[in-house]
Design a binder for these strands. Structure first.
Lengths: 103, 103
DNA sequence: TCGATTGTTCGATATATTTAGAACAATGGA
DNA sequence: TCCATTGTTCTAAATATATCGAACAATCGA
């Protein structure tokens, strides 16, 4: 698999981050990652096609919300907690605290 | 002018709020409202056509971010600060604190 | 080596969003 | 009343986004 691009902390853009989180599936992924740590792609929304999920993970990665790391045939995802908090203090926590329900 | 719909506080949805704020023009409007209080539509982005701005104000209003009130021929906009903070504690402040620059 | 597993990429389609001109509506002042 | 001001609505066009099947790539175990 190819090299995965991750934007550096100082390049994260607020509008991109907000856009990435404005999709219910992606918000759900982020919530799950925040509570369960590092998880492979396959553990999310198993009803949705893999190509759809792959797209959402890419959006999250390019917006700087998650870090992806290949390990074997799996791709592990983790939240870029500290980068986000350094760049946008309190933002992620406020979003995770919100009671919007994770469908 | 017609009656303006404002969603009640408890109906505000996180994904809608995040989407509304993920547009640079709308984020700019919200920032300006937060620092200057109540302002008529005409005071923002005077270079953009009125219809475009009208659209953005509508998106913000329907997402619950702003309250609009007609007064004379003007339409005054204000941030729904307390509603937002009640529904999504800390979210708006975190977004306003972020140093993304208001173009 | 073969096949199963996991995920990506490509291409197509459907849907949503943004932008903006033109016509319209409401208000207020001369 | 007439007109300027302010903003909305309608409509169209451009652009972006979401979804998903099919083909592909990489890894691992048998």
């Amino acid at each position: 698999m190819r090299e995965l691009h991750h934007p550096p902390r100082e390049c994260l853009e607020l509008t991109q981050v907000l856009h990435a989180l404005s999709d219910p599936i992606r918000l759900c992924i982020v919530r799950q990652l925040s509570s369960e740590g590092s998880l492979p792609c396959g553990t999310f929304c198993e009803s949705a096609p893999k190509s759809t999920m792959s797209h959402h993970f890419k959006v999250l990665r390019l917006a700087g919300l998650i870090r992806q790391r290949n390990e074997g045939t799996s791709c592990y995802n983790s939240l870029r907690n500290s980068d986000l908090d350094a760049r946008f203090p309190g933002l992620l926590n406020a979003i995770l605290r919100a009671d919007d329900g994770c469908e």
